[in-house]
Design a protein around this nucleic acid. Structure first.
Lengths: 189, 189
DNA sequence: ATGTTATATTCAATAATATGAATATGTCAA
DNA sequence: TTGACATATTCATATTATTGAATATAACAT
């Protein structure tokens, strides 16, 4: 369900083709939904078809000289109303599923260096992700007080990303230090 | 895939029936996998069947006087080895999918009070969750330095939970303050 | 007795996601 | 001209996840 609304929310701000959308739903694409909702191109095209059928979207075929033709989608009034309703609805808390924590929880089954490697890799990934967010902040959100309404909400999602990654990083630090901690004297003897 | 290993990792520590497992995979169950991997009972029973077929688990039927009979599962050597291999493997970063952020990103489409209600509900939920984690910490992890190897890893997953919820909470605070901030003088006129 | 709750499990349908393959047009560089 | 990219979309299949329904035993309260 959410994917369709995520698509609507992107299209309501900017008309786009399926191909354009696939890029915005990529987790590593700059400044787009991909940061908090990912989808494959196959998913997106299927969903676009459904939404058009329901009349929530309308499409316009655009001939191009130097590219294959494309279909540009835009949100209808009906679609926009459904989007607004969905946003207002209460959402149930998403199912938690974290593979790393499942593995870590059973970490006593394998040797410690293997676990440490894993944690350090995660640390790096979160550092990189945080760096991206902070660059976006520097480039586009220097003065949060003066943002347009539209950008205020973008800013809040960016802030969440920063807090999220920071949380992971401080945990990674603590976890690594904890596991590298020398064994207590009593247990050594 | 992960679910099967999550099941193995629980069973390797304690033999259990399908019914026992369903409780451990509940997100609100105290001190269990449910905190980082949830699954419904139907999923669990199906997975148990598959794992038994593959010989990674073995089951023993236990007659009970005051209850329906049950099947107690335990992990075979084969299963244990596969579990260890899986833990050691590198995991790909999980797909990001956060419904709240999708909604918030399009928050300019609805009125601000509706968004604030949403944020405050989330704040409450995260507060409650954090309180649970902190209680577990107080009750079972007062002296992290003296924990058994097994419990050291439990402790680390608990720590992650605490950092995660703390990150959400500080963000909720900032986001709410930001949206409640009085409109700038220029934009008012 | 009747209804509710807890234990214990199975089957079926549907929805969502992931993966692989295929097709078509056009640019650009070796 | 061959190969590698980038644009643009479709179809098929497989795996997971969600939801609903069903069955059975037994405790416990009204």
């Amino acid at each position: 369900m959410s994917l369709s609304f995520a698509i609507l929310s992107v299209l309501v701000a900017n008309h786009a083709s399926g191909y354009d959308l696939t890029k915005r739903f990529n987790p590593s694409a700059e400044g787009s939904v991909g940061f908090f909702w990912t989808a494959s191109f196959q998913q997106i095209y299927r969903e676009l078809g459904r939404l058009e059928e329901k009349g929530w979207l309308q499409a316009q075929t655009v001939q191009q000289d130097n590219r294959p033709d494309k279909r540009i989608y835009s949100v209808t009034e009906l679609g926009k109303q459904h989007l607004r309703d969905w946003i207002t609805e209460a959402e149930k808390s998403p199912p938690v599923r974290d593979e790393l924590l499942v593995k870590l929880n059973a970490g006593y089954l394998v040797d410690r260096p293997a676990i440490l490697v894993k944690l350090k890799m995660h640390q790096q990934q979160h550092q990189q992700r945080l760096a991206i967010y902070e660059e976006i902040e520097r480039n586009h959100f220097q003065n949060p007080e003066t943002l347009s309404e539209f950008l205020q909400f973008s800013y809040l999602t960016l802030l969440m990303g920063i807090h999220y990654e920071t949380g992971w990083l401080t945990w990674c630090d603590r976890a690594i230090r904890f596991l590298e901690m020398p064994v207590q004297e009593e247990t050594k003897r």
